[in-house]
């Protein structure tokens, strides 16, 4: 239905001292409906800036974003967002959080209730609707965030390190959940992460970005996400080609980091 097109997007920040930073330079990418794309890169490569532009929170200094035929000019319900943590509304119950989008749109009460109930079920939180969000663990809160985003039935789901603050065990479970929801809903998902393993597991396509200026450095098409839907994620991680890819990408990022360090330390 609606492909997400990133057309020659650039973002240049001006600093108060007059110099400029090229956070993103000439990024072009086409993401087809239903694709699962992960974006990886060392800190400072502009991946969060890119996601904020996709969401419509930032207007790029060059180029444009299109979703289907419409140009993105600001945030709207077509592109849902899942944040790292702390973006839930703690003055609302779990069910109220999940139903927030439809409620703002003025959907009928019965429809919202049914939708919330179904979503709580699919993220494994049935029976938690009346709890306060601060009574839940970090992993459960992220389940609420996923359900809240899905309740709006967006075309694209943008995830900004959604699992970054979770402990390793919870994280692994949540990775499985993300894959399951992707399969069930067929949504386009763009996921930003700084974990190489997570990027490999949760990306049909994996984009590696490089810093200064922020740009696309490499792109992979990967079989792991598709396999992970049916299989145990730990089995996927044990595949020899998974290990090879991981080492390859890790050393790529290492090189970038060393280059940055070198630049920083080199006498001007």
């Amino acid at each position: 239905m609606a492909d997400l097109k990133i057309e020659a997007v650039s973002m240049t920040f001006s600093l108060p001292n007059g110099s400029t930073i090229e956070a993103l330079k000439d990024i072009s990418l086409e993401i087809a409906q239903g694709e699962l794309v992960s974006v990886l890169g060392p800190s400072g490569c502009g991946k969060t800036t890119l996601l904020n532009i996709l969401a419509g929170f930032l207007a790029p200094t060059g180029g444009q974003i299109r979703l289907g035929k419409t140009e993105v000019t600001g945030p709207d319900r077509a592109r849902g967002m899942v944040f790292q943590q702390g973006a839930l509304f703690e003055w609302m119950s779990v069910a109220k959080n999940v139903g927030f989008g439809p409620r703002m749109a003025g959907r009928p009460r019965a429809e919202i209730d049914a939708r919330v109930e179904g979503l709580l079920q699919s993220v494994g939180l049935q029976g938690f609707g009346d709890k306060a969000v601060y009574e839940l663990s970090g992993g459960m809160q992220q389940r609420v965030a996923l359900a809240r985003c899905l309740a709006n039935d967006p075309d694209v789901i943008l995830m900004d390190e959604p699992l970054g603050a979770l402990d390793a065990l919870t994280r692994e479970k949540m990775q499985g959940l993300v894959l399951k929801l992707w399969k069930e809903t067929g949504k386009t998902i763009v996921l930003i992460t700084h974990s190489v393993e997570e990027a490999l597991l949760l990306g049909e396509r994996l984009i590696v970005m490089a810093p200064r200026p922020g740009r696309i450095h490499a792109e992979y098409r990967l079989p792991f996400a598709a396999r992970g839907v049916g299989e145990d994620l730990r089995m996927v991680k044990r595949l020899p080609e998974f290990g090879e890819r991981r080492d390859e990408i890790l050393s790529m990022i290492w090189e970038m980091e060393e280059e940055i360090m070198g630049k920083a330390e080199a006498p001007v």
Partner: peptide, 24 residues
């Protein structure tokens, strides 16, 4: 992130004020 979340869930300015900024 709460403000951003509310906007991308389709809240208007007034709804943001009423449901996010005021209780916060």
């Amino acid at each position: 992130s709460k403000v951003h979340a509310a906007y991308s869930l389709g809240a208007s300015k007034w709804q943001l004020l009423r449901h996010v900024i005021m209780p916060n």
